[in-house]
Design a protein around this nucleic acid. Sequence first.
DNA 1: CAAATTTTGTACCTACAGGTAAAGAAAGAG
DNA 2: CTCTTTCTTTACCTGTAGGTACAAAATTTG
Lengths: 192, 192
Amino acid sequence: MGRPKQFDPDVAVGKAMDVFWRKGYAATTPQDLVDELGIGKGSLYNAFGSKHALFERTLERYRDTQSAALVELLDQTGPVRPLLRSALELLIETDLGPSGRRGCFAVNTATELGGRDDASTELVRRMFERTEGAFKAAVERGQRTGEFAPDRDADAVASLMLAALVGMRVIARAQGGRERLHRIVDAVLDAL
Amino acid sequence: MGRPKQFDPDVAVGKAMDVFWRKGYAATTPQDLVDELGIGKGSLYNAFGSKHALFERTLERYRDTQSAALVELLDQTGPVRPLLRSALELLIETDLGPSGRRGCFAVNTATELGGRDDASTELVRRMFERTEGAFKAAVERGQRTGEFAPDRDADAVASLMLAALVGMRVIARAQGGRERLHRIVDAVLDAL
DNA sequence: CAAATTTTGTACCTACAGGTAAAGAAAGAG
DNA sequence: CTCTTTCTTTACCTGTAGGTACAAAATTTG
């Protein structure tokens, strides 16, 4: 009962995610959110409680969409090497595409709030772990099918792939050129 | 002539660097700076002009100390593999040491301001390029001396090393464990 | 020592961050 | 058709961000 909301909270969280993703947590103001969500400040605070609470919801949204999409991609069957290549190249195109060099929301959050906001840090840590796990599973598949050398430590390779992926997206934000990003992908696949 | 400063501006820039490094640009307030530098607000603005101008000076300081130190380390003569290992492991210890998981100031700045503050973005971009150049030179040395396989593209390997380094430091900020960081180093050296 | 120059401390300012309060509007319950 | 509940709007509030202004203090020059 009661008056129904005039906006869809799920849509609003998505828009808020875009703002936080582009500007970061500290640089995003209530006014920014009001402008981009197209709702009043009262509704904003009534629906989400605080800037920080909304921020956490956007991080969860990121995990459940972007981060999850990558993991699903990596979990696909079939030849592993082209799978890894297309996954990494997709991220390059995303970072260089029309949304424009906003990098990875989880990475941005790690460097802005890591160690200073426990909830956010923990969310990011788990996303990294999940991604690394997906890389590890892919590498092990490749090793079983003989695509990759079987003697390399899958854990170590997966950790390297996570680090390279994270590094790539930071470099993209710092105006790293497309060629440089592709070289990273080439080198990491050559390392298998 | 005129009254001499009661503080050493170079020391002050160093202290300001620590603050910005820990908290980021947006989250650092004039009050934070006044507290940590131990000077009045009047002196602060008289000496440095604005928060942003001071921030740029701290980034330059970072480039001329931390970033330059890594490049110098990598430029040393002698066996290359242990050199690379000790350089990367030094960063791990730095990130996990008593100063505590503040990551890399350049990386933090890239993700906070990349694409939104031209001067900072450009400074970071150049630091990344310099570091990559030092990696490349080291790899080429290793190839000449027969330490590394000579057929691999030194540019690509250097780009990968930069990305792995950057990724490592982000992961460190997100509470990544010591073992994970060491695995990354192992994997990247195995890739040579 | 007076004049000129620079630094320092204190006070002050405007705008906005991050919300809260209160009253009215829109739904369902009885 | 009133009562209750929830949402919306508008107004308001406190604290601080990011500086500026100005007088007093400390130095060099002549």
